[in-house]
């Protein structure tokens, strides 16, 4: 770094040069990211505002406790930590791609950019699974004195506070047949769906183990809106980042940057990608940890 002396000698602000020693494109990318930080900031702060205006908010460890292939096992935070690590690692591979670009090392850029794309795609896959799981999940919720099975959507939230056993027992008496069948199926895998469907309501209620059955009241609807809205907006950024990276990969392979003599575009794509990782750090904090 022979540049330290130069940094002090140069009259940065006297015109005719960039005061930050940065080409305009990188400067624009930085300020764009700053502006995007305010978009995400506004979303997350809105989420905080609504959360503070509620008396009850679901515990993230209860909501996010599933893992693909792990069935009903209670694994709070496990899957999201996988997602977080995927994103961190893809950020590292991006750093390496940018570094390879500095050295005009085309093969290196292709290799590391390729891995970054893989990481991004993997993250999107994880997010798709998580959304699917939450939307199609069937959770017992006490609605108007009877039990209903609802998933986590933009309009409904099944993660209210736990309903005491006495109320559950009373509610079961009023719950329609189909719901009882589904509930019985969840606690008793020995019997087939058809066998259960043939039983009377009272028999079904007797099959259901009330101690193992967790019935909740309806939770704050805003939870789903914010969760899908913000992780969706972040996912959209990941998706566009992957698209940008694919374009960069193609351009690298076609020697566009080699002929241009520099890989500055990769640096800008890299900044964007790291920003996506940065946002996830905060989404992770706001939705999964606190």
């Amino acid at each position: 770094m022979a540049t330290t002396a130069q940094v002090h000698q140069t009259k940065w602000w006297s015109g005719g040069k960039s005061p930050f020693n940065l080409e305009y494109g990188k400067l624009m990318m930085w300020y764009f990211l700053m502006s995007d930080a305010f978009t995400f900031g506004a979303f997350l702060i809105s989420y905080g505002t609504i959360r503070f205006s509620q008396n009850f908010w679901p515990d993230p460890n209860v909501v996010f406790n599933a893992f693909p292939g792990a069935g009903h096992a209670n694994l709070p935070l496990a899957f999201v930590s996988v997602m977080t690590f995927i994103l961190i690692i893809s950020s590292v591979t991006m750093v390496l791609a940018v570094h390879a670009g500095h050295k005009n090392d085309k093969a290196g850029v292709v290799k590391w950019l390729g891995w970054t794309i893989v990481g991004g795609a993997a993250f999107l896959g994880c997010q798709a699974w998580e959304w699917h799981h939450l939307i199609t999940g069937e959770h017992a919720v006490l609605v108007d004195g009877q039990i209903d099975l609802i998933g986590q959507t933009m309009r409904a939230n099944p993660w209210g506070s736990l309903v005491p056993h006495e109320s559950v027992a009373a509610a079961l008496q009023k719950t329609p047949h189909e719901t009882l069948v589904a509930l019985a199926h969840q606690s008793n895998h020995a019997l087939s769906h058809e066998q259960l469907a043939a039983m009377t309501d009272q028999q079904l209620v007797n099959t259901i183990n009330i101690d193992a059955l967790h019935v909740r009241s309806k939770g704050p609807v805003a939870f789903g809106g914010y969760f899908y809205g913000i992780t969706g907006f972040h996912g959209f950024h990941v998706f566009s980042g992957v698209v940008i990276n694919i374009v960069m990969l193609k351009m690298t392979q076609n020697n566009v940057f080699q002929n241009r003599g520099h890989y500055l575009m990769i640096e800008k794509a890299g900044l964007y990608w790291h920003f996506v990782d940065l946002v996830w750090v905060f989404v992770f904090l706001c939705f999964y940890l606190i």
């Binding site: 515990d59 069937e138 736990l162 509930l183 909740r216």
Partner: peptide, 15 residues
């Protein structure tokens, strides 16, 4: 029986 979960196992859910 507030928002704290007293039970070890997960709420009923479908995979």
């Amino acid at each position: 029986h507030g928002h704290q979960d007293k039970h070890q196992d997960p709420p009923a859910g479908k995979q």
